[in-house]
Every structure is written in C-alpha cells, then in structure tokens.
Amino acid sequence: MTPDLRGKVVLITGAAGGLGRTFALAFSGAGAQVAVADVNGAGAQETAELIRQAGGQALGLQVNVSDEASTLEMARAVRAEFGGLDALINNASLYAGLERLPFTEIDPAVWDWVMGVNLKGPWLCARAVTPLLRERGAGRIVNIASATVMSGSPLWAHYVASKGGVIALTRVLARELGDDGITVNAVAPGFTLTEASLGLMEDAASYGVGRGALKRAQQPGDLIGAALFFASDASAFITGQTLVVDGGRQFL
C-alpha cells in the first residue's frame, strides 16, 4: 500500500533525472506537492513539467547543493510557492563520471568536490529547510546513502567515504532534531540501474546479478517504497536509522 502524502510538500534534490526523477514522480503519485531541485535547472523543469502533465503540483528549481546561498534561496522559493515543507529527500550526489582509482591516486581536488556535493550538500540542505520543518511541528529528512559503505567498495574511496559521512550525519541530525518531532533516516541503495550507473562500466546492466538473495538487477523503482515510508507518517517513531535496499547482497 502506497503511503498517503496528500497535502504534504516534499523537496527532492538531484531530481533532474535518474533516481531523483523516479522519486519525484512517485511522491507526486502519492499525493504530495513536489519541489524538484537540481544543478541542472532545465532537467529540474522537465521533471516538474512531467508531474504537472500527470495532474500533480510541482516547482522546478536550479540549485547547487554545495553552495549555502543557493540552498537558502531554494528554501525561500519552496516557502513562497507552497507555504511550507514537510519532507526533504537529500538525493543529489556525484556519482556518474567518477573515475575508479586507488585511494593513493585520487586527486585532492576531486576528493573535495565529491565531499562538497555528497556530504556538505545534505548538511546545507537540511540546514536551510529545518526552519520550515520546525514550523510544521514535525517533518521528515531522508538522506540517500549507499550500500557501498557496508561493502567498502574498492577504488572509490571518495564516494564511499562521502556516503559513510551521510550515514553519520543522519544519526547526528536525528538526535538534534528529535525535540522538534523531525525524523531523519537514510536509505542505502545497492548498485541501481540508472543513467549514471550504466555509464560506469561495460557490464553495468548485469553487474551484481546473482550475487544477492534476489537474482536480478536493482531498478530505481526498488527504492520508492523505502523513501515513501521514511517520508510518511508510517515511520513517525523511527529515526536515526539506515535501511539497506540491495536485494540481500550485503547479507551473503
């Protein structure tokens, strides 16, 4: 059963395409008004238009999640358009185009770039919208981490470390925002077949198939249930947790 998000306002970062667009369409389908944020402003507008064409309400925003001023403007725009906010989905992430290298060969500038988007970004976005969530007297923050943190995926130290930081940030924010009735949880996907992941390796479409309990590739839609659950009232007494969604691969 899909959680009922009618009357809720949800902000999703990194939603110009891929997993973020999948989330945006799913949240709208559950009744939410959706603010679509992405550094790719045109892509954000496209996602918002898809939602409107399906009969939903959406706002497309160009946002650099690693820039404080940009995230504060994002919060102002959401308030102006929808009057408030009920949930933030911190999905924006650097993933596509990252070269897999031994940690000794990663350029420090690239390391800082990845950390700026993948870890600083969720912090800045949460910081910017917390006043809106507090005004509601409750709220939800859902951070998208990665199952690579559990496996220690080699040759990707910058990405894995950034997502490990997201899990740690999730627990800290849960403790700090509990008094406000705001829950903070994380979803850690396995290798998911998006446009970004398909460009990482030649065998991306079959990568990991047969290595988990479920013998098929992971699709973006496989993450929808976890994200909707953590953003809804169904998870009202769950906070500080990380849910791995990888078809059982980490348990084998």
Score class of each variant (00 low, 15 high):
G29S: 09
L173M: 10
L59R: 06
G208E: 12
M150N: 10
A138E: 13
V65C: 10
R211I: 00
I51F: 09
A204R: 06
G240F: 04
V78N: 02
R136D: 00
V187M: 04
R21V: 01
S206N: 12
V117T: 12
S28T: 04
M201Y: 12
G84E: 08
G7P: 07
A138V: 11
R100C: 12
N40R: 03
M201G: 08
L228A: 11
G7D: 09
E202T: 08
T13W: 01
G247Q: 05
Q218W: 02
A35M: 03
G225W: 05
H158E: 15
A69V: 05
G56C: 03
Q45A: 15
A236K: 13
A96Y: 12
V209F: 03
L59A: 03
L214T: 12
V187L: 01
G83P: 04
L72T: 06
D4N: 12
S153F: 15
T242R: 08
A87S: 12
R134Y: 09
G20Y: 01
G247W: 04
R134I: 14
Q250F: 13
S70G: 02
S232K: 02
V39F: 07
Q57T: 13
G208D: 13
D233H: 09
A32C: 07
L88W: 07
L85V: 04
M74R: 02
M115A: 03
E68A: 15
W156S: 10
G181D: 04
S70M: 06
G181K: 04
F191H: 02
G121D: 03
I144R: 02
E81P: 07
T104Q: 14
L88E: 06
T242E: 09
I12W: 06
G116N: 10
Y95M: 13
G84N: 10
L252P: 06
Q219L: 15
M74C: 09
V114R: 02
K120R: 15
V209P: 05
T183G: 11
R6Y: 09
P122E: 05
R249A: 15
A145C: 11
R216H: 13
G7T: 10
L5D: 01
L193K: 00
N143H: 02
A42G: 13
R6S: 14
T239C: 06
D67A: 11
E195L: 10
R175K: 15
E105V: 00
F27K: 01
Q250T: 13
G164K: 03
P102I: 04
Q33G: 08
R134E: 15
A205N: 00
T239G: 08
L88P: 00
